[in-house]
Amino acid sequence: MLRYTLRRVLQAIFVMLSVGFISFSMFTFVGDPILHMIGTEGTAADREALRNALGLNDPLIVQYVSFLGKMLTGDFGISYRLSMPVSDLIVERLPATLELAACAIALSIIIGIPLGIFTAIRRKSWVSQGILMGSLVGVSLPTFVIGMFLILIFSVNLGWLPAFGRGETAMVGNWSTGFLTTSGLRSLILPSIMLAFFQTTLIIRLVRAEMLEVLEQEYIRFARARGLSDRVIWFGEALKNTLVPVMTIVGLQMGSVIAFSIITETVFQWPGLGLLFIQAVENADIPVLATYLVLVSAFFVGLNLLVDLLYYLVDPRLRGGQGAPK
């Protein structure tokens, strides 16, 4: 166990160091930070003085280490475009993205799991066939097209829901939340549906496949032989074993919800991290780009590590081969 954990943690650290190096290279080799800071007017002596003051004349490895140190203490530099510390920008934008992602994940679980179970236990019904056909179309539909059609139907034609922004937000400490106002909640609906769409189709197919496989197992046949009712077999016996793999996949998918929120936030002009990132790409705002890269990677790597370690705890079969099991 210890050796396995150690190996996975070392691997995660190695990945983060390489990601850090990529984002460090963006600072060092892409464009000239001095030009960004004092423009083209400064004299050669001014620039040289600033270079020395910023440590840009130090050996690369020294610069890299000090860069890592700054990242670890939360000093991500200053945005070229907005002239604000990147850490402030992140703190300001993070709540919007997290609230949106949480709603989308909750929505996809609430809709996806029951529909998946239904299509598995009523395999032949035409409703199941319809749901499955719909989920195939859902996989092929580009997410931004879904968002556009949602806006066209519910905002432009019916005028029921707002099509952009977060509505009014309330401050709870440093956290700006849209959960406490009606306009905030109304604004959440369409973006959450769009972001949840792909996840929902994925969960439906996953739950269905897992459930069908579990229902073929010996212990289910035995339960039937004991005369247990369908209801008890489905929800008492089969469901538990279906949900373990589903939960891990859903956990891993949280990363892609964050990634796809870039698209959702652009469509709905949602003031979150994704929109910040897209604007940074458009304007070559390197400090923001690099920070987003590091933060999102840390999130992904952490998630993967967590899932791997949980799997190890949950599934004893993995403990064979490597390391001494305790």
Binding site: S18, M26, V30, A259, I262, A284, L293
Partner: peptide, 25 residues
């Protein structure tokens, strides 16, 4: 493995962002 743990669209966006940052818009 490392690349697989990131969604494609994010990788494409990052490559695009880096290239455009180095050439200018």
């Amino acid at each position: 493995d490392i690349q697989l743990s990131f969604p494609n669209i994010l990788v494409a966006l990052l490559i695009d962002g880096m290239v455009s940052a180095s050439f200018g818009r």
